[in-house]
Amino acid sequence: MAASPAPTLAIEARGLSRVLPGPVPVTLVDDVSLGIAKGEMVAITGASGSGKSSLLYLLGLLDTPTGGSVWIDGRDMARLPPAEMAAVRLARLGFVFQFHFLLPEFSVLDNVTLPIRKLGRLSAGEVQARGEALLVDLGLADHMRKFPDQLSGGQRQRVAIARALANDPLIVLADEPTGNLDSRNARAVFDIFIRLAHEHKCALAIVTHEHNLADLADRRLVMADGRLEA
């Protein structure tokens, strides 16, 4: 049994592998080890099919590794039952995807407060206040009562970021968050991420194929054929 990693690391992967079973097994992620500290922003780049998204899903406990382990805040996640993994995702992790995945029937504010209500630690009034504060912080003060289809692409993605931050997560994982945005909006979203890492002390892992944006991160990792390049 390996020793617990240094406590300053928010998330750590040790020899992480993911192989799709089948007549011809496909290796998506191959023996990847990495650690991200609190307040650090890491960009993961690589050609499409290099396994960068698969790595992100493994880090985010959405997928189960075939080898190796993920440690979050010093705890090994490998042996956790699915329900507890869900609880970790709820309280510790935030996701931002290329598509915003906002619930169309719920207002912007209701979308953002959904994870807070699910966690159930705040009263109704506090939930409301926290949601509003997040939206104000992301420059969406005028759009709280609107519905997702009344917003622009950039605004929707900012709502999705606000939702990812709802429970004040330790780690935010973003999979091509700017993939559907023009360069101006993409830059704005990245600026938000940088601010988050530094102000909220989040660990940030961002998968992107835009090199100019990746250069803004504290550290840049490049993946090829499921492995991290040195």
Binding site: G60, L62, A83, A86, R89, F95, F101, K118, L119, R163
Partner: peptide
């Protein structure tokens, strides 16, 4: 399915 996916990634369990 998209909503279900985001709810699950957000931390809704299978039971939820």
């Amino acid at each position: 399915t998209r909503d279900i996916a985001i709810l699950k990634s957000m931390g809704f369990s299978e039971g939820d």
